[in-house]
């Protein structure tokens, strides 16, 4: 059995391509699209896969990460999916990839002009917890009325002394649209600001695509007297010794043993002795 190139039929790709171009023209705005059923369940990257399938070509080199790791089930199977259906070269090296599909991390290595990073997004609407009615949240975006989110941030700070969101911390894009960065750690948020690479976001279940063009302002929501201050575990990586990378905490036994290692496996391997 043969598949259409990159799995999706050409009419679907055209529809997604039109949505991507409008998303690029209106940074941070969620463009609805007719997400297709994919050969994997919702929550496993159906949105990201459809975006990648619509942009990928034979000369691309694809890297896929899941929480920073190239060797987890989700990353391995998506990489194999495109190696099989699109015949592309794959890599685990951030510097060699032309397209990086990611679940919940941005690589530590600074992305370069010409690269494209595709985020898998479970919930594209940053206001969903505060205003569950889509009709209403659409209006709030149209009016750029983001007071609700500022109030939530204020309540976090009033209760906890600091913003309580360790991940998925909302951002303002190009000074206009409030956007969900997808559930990346707050640690990664500053990497989105004026990133030289093109950032595309696909939400399959929620059927939304959005984008941030290169060199676009992406500001994490905060207050003047409580500036955005992401948390990093105060340890060096146990493998490569990095003190500036995002760390995973690994439980090593059942008597309280633990170690902290880089979440970005490629970054760690490049640095490890």
């Amino acid at each position: 059995m043969t598949y259409s190139y990159a799995f999706l039929d050409e009419a679907t790709k055209r529809m997604i391509r039109r949505a991507i171009l409008k998303a690029v023209a209106i940074p941070g705005h969620q463009v609805p699209f007719g997400a297709r059923e994919m050969p994997l369940p919702y929550g496993w990257g159906t949105g990201g896969i459809q975006v990648t399938a619509s942009i990928i070509g034979r000369s691309d080199v694809l890297k896929v990460i899941d929480q920073g790791a190239d060797d987890t089930t989700n990353a391995v199977s998506i990489r194999r999916f495109f190696a099989r259906t699109a015949g592309v070269a794959t890599t685990t090296h951030t510097a060699e990839a032309s397209i990086i599909q990611t679940r919940h991390r941005i690589p530590e290595r600074v992305l370069q002009p010409g690269q494209i990073i595709v985020y898998q997004v479970p919930m594209p609407e940053p206001l969903s917890r505060l205003e569950p009615r889509v009709v209403e949240s659409t209006k709030l975006h149209a009016l750029a009325d983001y007071g609700l989110m500022q109030v939530r941030l204020y309540e976090d700070i009033a209760r906890h002394g600091r913003s309580a969101s360790a991940y998925n911390h909302p951002v303002m894009v190009n000074g206009r649209y409030l956007m969900s960065p997808s559930p990346i750690p707050a640690f990664d948020n500053p990497k989105m600001d004026r990133m030289p690479a093109l950032q595309l976001f696909g939400a399959g279940r929620e059927k939304r695509i959005y984008a941030v063009p290169p060199y676009t302002s992406v500001k994490s929501l905060d207050f003047e007297d409580h500036p955005f201050d992401p948390i990093r575990a105060p340890h060096p990586c146990a493998i490569c010794g990095a003190t500036d990378s995002y760390l995973d905490e690994i439980v090593t036994d059942d008597v309280g043993g633990r170690m902290f290692v880089c979440s970005d496996t490629d970054h760690c391997e490049e640095r490890a002795p």
Partner: peptide
């Protein structure tokens, strides 16, 4: 080539609009 003609052209448009 309908598939790669369109794909190549799309990437050029995507690059043109994103930069």
């Amino acid at each position: 080539d309908a598939v790669f003609g369109a794909q190549g052209c799309f990437r050029a448009i995507l690059a043109a609009l994103s930069e």
